[in-house]
């Protein structure tokens, strides 16, 4: 089976709480993600987008249905995942470099090699920092950086151990529009270089269309996947791309589908 998807969700639903407080966050999701695919999930707020992410990574077990990664059912947090959240959760007591090196301290086999090969790993961290435009900021503390720089670090930390799957939960949501658009470019560059599989959760449709190969639209709670749209715009996409008719058309199409949810 050459074309077996990397991640597969089969009729997955998730409910929080029990009895009368039971609340269905995600209802009956079926989707598959190819290796190296960039997937974006958009939808109204509170539709279970983040839940979907936690299900894929095994942080939450589904209430019904199956989550498969590499064809194996996911029952516990799976290895080889990088995560970046809207809240950058960088540790203020660590320098930027030490923050980025966190996965090396925790993930096998790096954690057993780190002590002896520290210089090699530090060089890796520096190189990654440089590739997102943060060369020379390794010794700064996160709180000495701007919001955009912090999110660059955040993405670096999620990528440093070269995970197979990168989970992005509205990582640019708290940034101003200019910084956000700049970081789309950074993100795309990293993806083109490394070709990891990425799942981006966002409520910014332009962001989704700019970055993703496939966009899934989710309905209001209980979240359900109501639309799948392939984005075949050529890469690398630029900010100019976002003003081209083809791009705008897709964004409109997605917006209309989401507006139906609010009607």
């Amino acid at each position: 089976m050459a074309s077996e998807p990397l991640v597969e969700l089969r009729n997955v639903s998730l409910a929080y709480g029990e009895g009368r407080e039971r609340m269905v966050a995600l209802g009956d999701a079926t989707l598959s993600i190819e290796k190296g695919e960039f997937v974006a999930v958009v939808g109204p707020s509170g539709c279970g987008k983040s839940t979907l992410m936690k299900l894929v990574t095994g942080l939450l077990p589904p209430s019904t249905g199956t989550v498969l990664v590499h064809g194996r059912e996911v029952t516990a947090p799976i290895p080889g995942v990088g995560m970046a959240f809207q809240n950058s959760t960088l540790m203020p007591w660590r320098t930027t470099r030490d923050n980025i090196m966190l996965p090396f301290e925790v993930v096998a086999p790096h954690k057993h090699r780190l002590r002896r090969h520290r210089a090699e790993y530090e060089a890796k961290a520096e190189a990654l920092l440089a590739s997102v435009g943060l060369a020379g900021f390794g010794d700064k503390y996160p709180w000495q950086l701007s919001g955009g720089m912090q999110q660059r670090c955040n993405v670096c930390r999620a990528l440093i151990h070269e995970p197979e799957i990168l989970m992005l939960d509205e990582p640019f949501g708290a940034l101003d529009a200019f910084t956000r658009e700049e970081l789309w470019g950074v993100m795309q560059k990293l993806w083109l270089e490394r070709r990891f599989t990425a799942v981006l959760v966002t409520h910014d449709l332009r962001e989704a269309v700019y970055l993703a190969d496939t966009v899934y639209v989710m309905s209001r709670r209980p979240g359900r996947i109501v639309k799948r749209r392939t984005i075949d715009l050529p890469r690398p996409r630029t900010l100019d791309t976002t003003f081209e008719p083809g791009f705008v058309e897709i964004v409109h199409e997605l917006r209309e589908r989401i507006q139906m949810e609010h009607a």
């Binding site: 990574t57 942080l59 947090p77 290895p79 995942v81 990088g82 995560m83 959760t89 151990h161």
Partner: peptide, 14 residues
Amino acid sequence: IEPEMRDLMRSLGA
């Protein structure tokens, strides 16, 4: 501790 931080550590297999 922020829940995101816990999720991050768990996803790294900590």
